[in-house]
């Protein structure tokens, strides 16, 4: 009898097990389907969001070449790089001397002129024309513009004064005018970016 009972029980248990197995397998399928749908949605979202990044033609223009042969000492030009203004300034020997000699102690963002220019070309100061405070374009590059108390650049938005090496001397801006990556292709042509 006992054997029969056990066999019966075993059969019932087995049947239960099959049922449970079935239930679990079904759940697994639903979970898998929903997970796949989620992964698919993410896989579609990626290119859609990626399309917002800089397009190939914009990236292709990320470096420019500028002819600087016409900039006399003491003058500066404003050009555009990556849709932002860039100041290229030809410092006079006097300015180079003073800027190199300036004491770093008083500066908010201490940097020597040599650190901000290329060796042997210390008279060529290339900076972004974007005030490091809130992004206005400082004055001082064009002839006749206010150059601020330190003879470099002056930002009219909130009164930041930069010296001839584009270093922040006074006002709210936290850092010096940024120096983009640049190099001399020849004595008269520089490549920015």
């Amino acid at each position: 009898m006992a054997t029969v009972d056990t066999a019966k029980d075993a059969a019932v248990l087995a049947a239960h097990a099959v049922e449970e197995e079935g239930v679990r397998r079904r759940d697994f399928i639903h979970v898998a389907t929903i997970s796949f749908a989620g992964v698919g949605a993410a896989a579609v979202a990626l290119p859609l969001l990626g399309s917002l990044s800089a397009s190939a033609d914009v990236v292709a223009l990320s470096s420019i070449e500028v002819d600087i042969s016409k900039i006399e000492p003491g003058q500066a030009i404003k050009t555009s790089w990556r849709k932002q203004p860039v100041f290229i300034r030809n410092l006079t020997p006097q300015e180079v001397k003073e800027a190199s000699a300036a004491s770093l102690d008083a500066m908010r963002d201490p940097q020597t002129l040599a650190e901000r220019t290329l060796p042997g070309k210390e008279n060529w100061l290339v900076t972004l024309g974007v005030c490091t405070h809130l992004g206005c374009v400082p004055l001082g590059a064009a002839a006749g513009e206010v150059k601020g108390e330190f003879g470099g650049y002056f930002c009219p938005c909130h009164g930041s004064h930069y010296d001839t090496a584009g270093r922040i001397m006074k006002g709210p801006a936290p850092t010096n005018l940024a120096v983009p990556e640049f190099s001399f292709l020849s004595d008269t042509i520089i490549k920015i970016g």
Binding site: I29, A32, T33, F36, A37, V39, G40, A43
Partner: peptide, 10 residues
């Protein structure tokens, strides 16, 4: 390939 698997699961 992704969609074939998804559709099979669905």
């Amino acid at each position: 390939i992704f969609l074939l698997i998804f559709t099979g699961l669905a």
